[in-house]
Design a protein around this nucleic acid. Sequence first.
DNA 1: CGATCGTTTGATCCGCATCAAGATAGGTGG
DNA 2: CCACCTATCTTGATGCGGATCAAACGATCG
Lengths: 266, 266
Amino acid sequence: MFIDPMATLPLFGDIGPVESRLLSENSRVRAYPKGAYIFRQGADIQNFYVVCKGTVQVYRGTPDGHEITSDILIAGDCVNAEEIIALDTAHTANTRIVEEAIILELPIHWMRDNMNDLARLAPRLLVGLADRLRGALKDAEHFSTLSAPQLIACYLQSLCVPYGFDPRSFDLPYSKTLIASRLHMELATFSRSLKKLKPFGIVVTGNHVAITNLKKAERLVCNRCTITETCRTRALLDRPPTVVLCTPGMNGERQTGLRVPQVAGV
Amino acid sequence: MFIDPMATLPLFGDIGPVESRLLSENSRVRAYPKGAYIFRQGADIQNFYVVCKGTVQVYRGTPDGHEITSDILIAGDCVNAEEIIALDTAHTANTRIVEEAIILELPIHWMRDNMNDLARLAPRLLVGLADRLRGALKDAEHFSTLSAPQLIACYLQSLCVPYGFDPRSFDLPYSKTLIASRLHMELATFSRSLKKLKPFGIVVTGNHVAITNLKKAERLVCNRCTITETCRTRALLDRPPTVVLCTPGMNGERQTGLRVPQVAGV
DNA sequence: CGATCGTTTGATCCGCATCAAGATAGGTGG
DNA sequence: CCACCTATCTTGATGCGGATCAAACGATCG
């Protein structure tokens, strides 16, 4: 099974033929079975990895033996872009294969040696880094402002963008257990919260999701959330996806505290 | 009051005289009074900003009129590094002056035009971006795994690094209200949690903090937290600060759920 | 000396984690 | 085809942490 990463990955989409060959010569493509690790937390950073196919769970283990999923990656995603630049010598997370995956790897020292040409080699790498940062900021904000049902509503809608799902009817791309973990909540809480979404037009039965009323679904989230990947879902139907700011109005000048009133019953 | 940003800012520490003059010619330094805004959420992105002096609160407003502090910046910090690269045209957060500040500004279009030379112009800009990303990941993890007292313990210790405080005795650099907001918790919760820290050798009276027992204080956090800015505090006393991984042991293979047992009474 | 700001403290309530017991489904072997 | 098994998910009961509302306290200031 051969895959030409240059042709597949938007990451390297707009580079010239010279750079393309350079990349090919210095990269390697490898297949991983389900359950395998690309690398583990604490191990030496050796390569930069890009997912070409499959699903990868990024998680961190706490000393008391539990784990926190920080991201779920699919084809086209960089696994550890920030580690090219980081001062660390060790990986700060585990990356485990959820669905059989094909991974492109580039030696990290080669990447670093070519840092000066990086902008030319992979202009989108920086964009990816910035995107990832924004995603992390969004997560931090969401986890401390949205309720469990809101988080789920937001996540389900945002799923549609990378996967190209029709919000009105699609299947979950991975297990509920994994999704719950990604949303930093217990499976039990996740399961219970799904029922609360029905009145808002989000019906999940088994593996299948049906978002029947996008306006309602958005309203569920938008009074709290501001970065709102969520709103991309609607964009899917109307125009090409971009990040939409849901906060038109300005806010109070003086208050500094965290103060987010609950949506009734959700 | 004149400040030469090139001399002051480590961000531009290792650039040559040519680049330095280029920067000077294209930058502007401006003083802001307390309470002023550098920019507001939703406004057009015009400049890249660096804090030369003072304190800046970065926060986002939710549609229902409340606000969430995402960061507090001090001298040397980039305000919006990610926005140089972002595809967005509008600021995604507010930046308000907490203590009278001096801000360096560089036109964003100039930064972008010189993207190719960016690595040469400001090699540390990328490092800063990566650091910021790591910080955001840490926040996301901490907010959903640490209890309020643990968050505070972690934060108090991490404060010592950028400010060069002696953990055994220092004053809070800004109000408790602001800190509580930065930690995404209510002021009331913050206030109450401080008392719970005493048994762990962290005594806060009024504005003053005394961390009498670093080992105890670390233990309070480290069984849950893995990235642990916290551990830097100890490093302050022993060796130059670096990020320390607190997870020597590996964790279970199969569990995927979020499962973080409580520390008794904290 | 009232007034305002920042902080503490109290009482109450709700969301979610936790523990634990069913339920459903896919897979295997007899 | 059915009994069995394990993985995945649902549902129930309970408890704790922290948000919320509200009142009191201490400072600083005109």
